[in-house]
């Protein structure tokens, strides 16, 4: 089994998944990209990811539903939300639901990377302390 961290990207626009996958792979992550919530959640059954980066507004299963499902299945998985429609209510709701970070699009890839890294370090510390 690979000791790389696994990252899942969910966005209904291919360009977002392609770019995120490419840049995160360069950092040594193992990345899978999905174009909708349905296939992404199906992939998650029985196969935990360390980080899930999801678009908020998608047809069918949206970002909030992804967040809730992920947290129910794997409470330790880090969830990061990105959205083109920056809206405070959404942010508050998402944060209450334990989203690690929240980015309006366009999001600087470097910031996304830093956020993922911080989350993983924090999780490691928690595990050590637990």
């Amino acid at each position: 089994m690979s000791n790389k961290h696994k990252v899942m990207i969910i966005d209904d626009e291919k360009i977002v998944g392609d770019m995120a996958k490419l840049s995160l792979e360069q950092e040594g992550y193992e990345v899978e990209a999905f174009l909708n919530g349905e296939t992404a959640l199906a992939r998650l059954q029985g196969s935990p990811f360390d980080v899930v980066v999801t678009d908020f507004k998608m047809k069918g299963i949206d970002g909030l539903e992804v967040l809730r499902t992920v947290k129910k299945l794997y409470p330790k998985t880090v969830v990061i939300m990105i959205t083109a429609f920056a809206n405070l209510d959404v942010a508050i709701e998402a944060l209450r639901d334990d989203v690690h970070d929240f980015f309006p699009k366009p999001v600087k890839i470097k910031e996304l990377k830093a956020s993922i890294q911080r989350a993983l370090e924090k999780r490691k510390d928690e595990n050590v302390n637990a």
């Binding site: 770019m19 366009p106 600087k108 890839i109």
Partner: peptide, 10 residues
């Protein structure tokens, strides 16, 4: 330019 995640909406 390649440093941002953006969508067609942007």
């Amino acid at each position: 330019g390649g440093d941002y995640l953006f969508d067609v909406n942007y």
